[in-house]
């Protein structure tokens, strides 16, 4: 009896979790312009559309540019924030952590409104730069958290050991602290990239027609008309997520064998 309840609820929930994507994504290869089963045949035609039609390709390029820019800036901002916060006393850490993490809990729409207005007033609205700036605020907390976690996990004795052998503060930081916190930075960089690459809401407020990102283009065509290219985009974005998880897994494994 208990087995039946357990398995039936588990199977139902699992199905609900995985089925939508598993059912829909294969339609990217369907040789028909209707998104229905049974499939009419196998084709790469919609991929061709994606890689040749200007709005899609251009927005993919925009997305990559924005995500890379965000990754670099967020890594710098979040990484420095974490290292600086680590050096502060207990209360300083509390206050600074609250500040650096807080963008996570602010609804994206609110951030979007605030940034669209403020960036417009600063005269940087609309472009690639404003998207990187906005996504940096969304991504820096994740970098901050992952770097902070790896710094906190460091054994303080290691730094003392290095000091007892004559290493200066800066040399210790370079040779001991930084290499050991590396997985934290790498994880943070991945988080930053994927956060920016998948972000829609804030980008909707900020992007101009020239700086549209892939999610924006997907969002507008979903409101507009359903075509198989949409599923192609969904498939490509899912693949990016899979790659991301694999990379994340690798990093965690490496971190574990070290410590």
């Amino acid at each position: 009896m208990s087995r039946i309840i357990y398995w039936s609820s588990l199977v139902f929930a699992f199905f609900f979790l995985v089925a939508p994507l598993l059912i829909v994504l294969p339609l990217a290869f369907n040789d028909s312009s209707f998104l229905t089963y049974p499939m009419d045949g196998f084709t790469f035609r919609w991929f061709e559309v994606f890689f040749t039609a200007p709005p899609w390709l251009a927005s993919l390029m925009n997305s990559l540019k924005v995500a890379l820019g965000t990754m670099i800036v967020a890594l710098l901002v979040g990484g420095m924030a974490a290292m600086g916060t680590m050096l502060m006393g207990k209360w300083g850490q509390l206050v600074l952590s609250a500040l650096f993490v807080s963008p996570i809990v602010i609804p994206s729409v609110v951030l979007g409104v605030a940034m669209a207005y403020a960036f417009g007033r600063m005269g940087v609205g609309g472009g690639y730069l404003s998207l990187v700036m906005a996504h940096t605020i969304l991504a820096a907390p994740l970098v901050f958290l992952s770097v902070m976690t790896s710094l906190k996990g460091l054994d303080p004795e290691l730094d003392r050991a290095a000091a007892s052998m004559g290493a200066s503060r800066w040399y210790r930081f370079q040779t001991v602290t930084l290499p050991l916190a590396m997985p934290g930075f790498a994880t943070g960089a991945l988080f930053a990239f994927i956060t920016s690459f998948d972000e829609v809401v804030v980008a909707l407020f900020l992007a101009s027609p020239q700086s549209q990102t892939l999610p924006i283009t997907l969002f507008s065509s979903l409101r507009d008309r359903l075509e198989p290219t949409i599923v192609v985009v969904a498939l490509l974005l899912s693949i990016v997520s899979c790659l991301f998880i694999i990379a994340l897994n690798r990093l965690q494994k490496r971190g574990e064998t070290r410590n």
Partner: peptide, 11 residues
């Protein structure tokens, strides 16, 4: 880790 937009697209 699959974006919200992609999963909404599926629905």
């Amino acid at each position: 880790w699959t974006s919200i937009l992609v999963r909404t697209t599926a629905w």
